[in-house]
Design a protein around this nucleic acid. Sequence first.
DNA 1: TTTAATTCGGATATTTTTATCCTTTTTATT
DNA 2: AATAAAAAGGATAAAAATATCCGAATTAAA
Lengths: 144, 144
Amino acid sequence: MFSKACEYGIKATIFIAIKSYEGVRVSPKEIAKEIDSPEAFTAKILQALVRHDVISSLKGAYGGFEIAKDRIPLVKLADIVNAIDGDAIYNGCGLGLHKCSETHPCPVHDKFKAIREGLKDMLERTSLEELALDIKSGASFLKV
Amino acid sequence: MFSKACEYGIKATIFIAIKSYEGVRVSPKEIAKEIDSPEAFTAKILQALVRHDVISSLKGAYGGFEIAKDRIPLVKLADIVNAIDGDAIYNGCGLGLHKCSETHPCPVHDKFKAIREGLKDMLERTSLEELALDIKSGASFLKV
DNA sequence: TTTAATTCGGATATTTTTATCCTTTTTATT
DNA sequence: AATAAAAAGGATAAAAATATCCGAATTAAA
Ligand code: FES
Ligand code: FES
């Protein structure tokens, strides 16, 4: 469903949010350990998230990745997915036709569209805040 | 969402069904042309579909791929997807945890599960018959 | 029985995704 | 100003997905 890059990106962002609540920045090394991902690859994904303004970074000594506390409730899963996988998940045809279209639909268009809209809704409704709170409360987990 | 292989597999099976209604077998070349896919790669996918008993084939002169008419209403989209992509789409964790689990859920488990069940339902409910009839009636298209 | 047509299966090539490494740039501290 | 710590970015490597090629096996017809 999501690419590996996207999976790592979501988990990394959640971890960064949790640490940002505590006011501390985190390194790719710390993130990779916490979410059980390859460090260098994770660092690349963090760069993309910074470029897309999902998270922010500070270079140099005492630097690291963070996210402003007041942005945590505003960031949606869709923002993370979009930054990494783009919007193919929303606009693409389920059977790979050049373009998903009502007037020239593929055989699964109607049924696929319903699923896709559900997914889109879910991604746009789910905030980073709720995901982070569930991890903090022990209701969900980032690895294993 | 689906792999390229799976997309080709679905479209190929629909085309084979249509031709099987007319009682004629089709070759990978004809299929690839009709669904706009790479011929040799499509042939490999057809082999997988034969192995999984989704379609059947006859070697040699006047051979080709076909599907028994009375099987067309019984074959579901899920059978095709399963033959090619396996069941990761049903059992896998949306964030790549080793196993999707109620007792050790990832941050998106609840929300992802709902989408996934919807997809599973759709795949298990949608028959090859209805897909093929929509193509025949011109309500949907296999390429462009 | 020969021939031509056709799927099957293995080997190989290309492209994309995933992953690693190393140098440069930036920054806070000393 | 010098130093050390850290992200940024480019180059490269490995793995997986996609795609191609070709000989072997099978089949129906002539
Ligand atoms: S045309 Fe294929 S999903 Fe809309
Ligand atoms: S644990 Fe991740 S989807 Fe169920």
